[in-house]
C-alpha cells in the first residue's frame, strides 16, 4: 500500500460495446442499444444512473453523458435515448448522423447521481421532454419490487411524446401525460397537496421546470431531502479565452465550441471527471489567480464559492477577461 492519497482518475471504468440497435422514436429522439463487445453481461445498475459515451468524431473525442433507460434487470443490453440538439455542440448530432448498428464504441460503467431514495413509501416522477429517460429505468426497477410510483410527464406535442404509448399501455393507472400544445399543465400544487407522508418527488427536465418544482415544493413545506432533481448541463459555447495551467506548465486556449475541460484534455493534461455536466464535483479545480469574470454554470459549487473566485468546474463553466491561472 502506498501512503499518498490517490489522485482521482479521469472518468469511470470503461466498457467496449457494439451498437446493436438504432431505433428512431420520433423527429427528435433516437434510442441506441449496446451489447458488450466481449460477449459478457453488463454490470447491474440502479435506476437514475448514466453512462458517458465516447464518440470518435474524426479524431476529436466527444464525451457525452446519457441516462441509462433500459430495464436494470436486463444485463444483456444497455440503452440510451438521445435527443438531437441542432443548436448544440455536435455530440447528439454525431450520434444521430454517424452511429449505426455494428459500430464499436466505448461507454463508462454506470454512475448514479440521481438515485431513488429507497426509504420512500411512494415515488412521484415529474418528467419534461427527454427528461423521461432516467425514469424509464427507475420505473422498471420499482416494478420488479412492487414499488409505489406515479409519473407526470409533460411533452410538447403527441408526436414528440417519447415512450408515451409504451408507458400508457403498460401502466395505464400510474402514468399521466400533459401536452403543451393542448394547454395541459401539471397541477403541481394540487399534486403535492395530496401525497402521503414519506413521498419523494423526482424531477428531470429543463432548468425552468426543475426550479419550479423545487420552489413549489419548498413553498408547500416539503423537506429539501424529499425533492430530487437531475439536470445535465451541456457546455455552452462562448468567446475563446486563454488559461495558464500551472502544475503542467502549459498555456492553452479554450475555443468557442469546446469546454475548458475539453481544452485541458486536448493539451494532454489528465483531469478528473465523471458526469461532465456540472453535477458530480469530480473536476473541481482551484484557481491560482484571475483577472476577469467567471461564467459559473455548475450545480456543484455554492454561491459563496462562485463569488470567491477560488474554484471553477471546467466541465461547464467558462471565463472572460485578461488572465486565468489554474492549479492543474
Amino acid at each position: 500500500m502506498s501512503a499518498a492519497p490517490q489522485k482521482a482518475k479521469p472518468g469511470a471504468e470503461k466498457i467496449a460495446v457494439n451498437v446493436t440497435a438504432v431505433v428512431p422514436l420520433n423527429d427528435l429522439v433516437t434510442r441506441f442499444e449496446f451489447q458488450r463487445s466481449d460477449g459478457d453481461l453488463f454490470p447491474p445498475f440502479s435506476g437514475g444512473a448514466h453512462t458517458v459515451v465516447t464518440m470518435d468524431d474524426n479524431g476529436r473525442h466527444r464525451l457525452n453523458p446519457y441516462s441509462l433507460m433500459s430495464d436494470p434487470a436486463d444485463l444483456t443490453t444497455y440503452a440510451i435515448s438521445v435527443r438531437r440538439d441542432d443548436e448544440g455542440r455536435g455530440g447528439s448530432l454525431f450520434m444521430h448522423r454517424n452511429v449505426s448498428v455494428g459500430d464499436r464504441m466505448t461507454i463508462t460503467y454506470p454512475v448514479n447521481l440521481f438515485s431513488l431514495d429507497l426509504r420512500a413509501r411512494k415515488h412521484v416522477f415529474l418528467a419534461g421532454g427527454i427528461g423521461i429517460t432516467p425514469f424509464m429505468a427507475m420505473i422498471a426497477q420499482l416494478e420488479h419490487s412492487n414499488g409505489n410510483w406515479e409519473l407526470h410527464y409533460a411533452c410538447r406535442t403527441p408526436a414528440l411524446g417519447t415512450y408515451v404509448d409504451e408507458l400508457r399501455y403498460k401502466y395505464p393507472n400510474k402514468v399521466h401525460i400533459y401536452y403543451d400544445d393542448q394547454n395541459q399543465a401539471i397541477r403541481l400544487e394540487d399534486l403535492l397537496d395530496g401525497q402521503p407522508l414519506g413521498t419523494n418527488i423526482y424531477v428531470c427536465g429543463p432548468k425552468g421546470m426543475i426550479d419550479w418544482v423545487h420552489a413549489t415544493a419548498s413553498a408547500a413545506g416539503w423537506p429539501d431531502a424529499n425533492v430530487h432533481s437531475e439536470e445535465f448541463l451541456a457546455p455552452q459555447p462562448g468567446e475563446p479565452f486563454e488559461v495558464r495551467l500551472c502544475k503542467s506548465d502549459k498555456t492553452i486556449t479554450v475555443g468557442e465550441h469546446e469546454s475548458l475541460l475539453e481544452a485541458i484534455e486536448r493539451a494532454g493534461v489528465e483531469a478528473p471527471f465523471l458526469c461532465r455536466g456540472g453535477s458530480c464535483g469530480q473536476c473541481e479545480t482551484n484557481v491560482v489567480s484571475h483577472d476577469g469574470t467567471f461564467v459559473h454554470r455548475d450545480h456543484w459549487l455554492t454561491e459563496d464559492q462562485h463569488a470567491s473566485g477560488e474554484k471553477i468546474m471546467p466541465c461547464v463553466s467558462r471565463f472572460a477577461g485578461k488572465s486565468l491561472e489554474l492549479d492543474r
Partner: peptide
Amino acid sequence: ERALKFLLNIQQGAPARRL
C-alpha cells in the same frame, strides 16, 4: 470532509482500500 468526498465518488468497478 475529504474522506467523505472520496467515498461518495467511489464508482462501480473501481473499489478502494486503506489500512
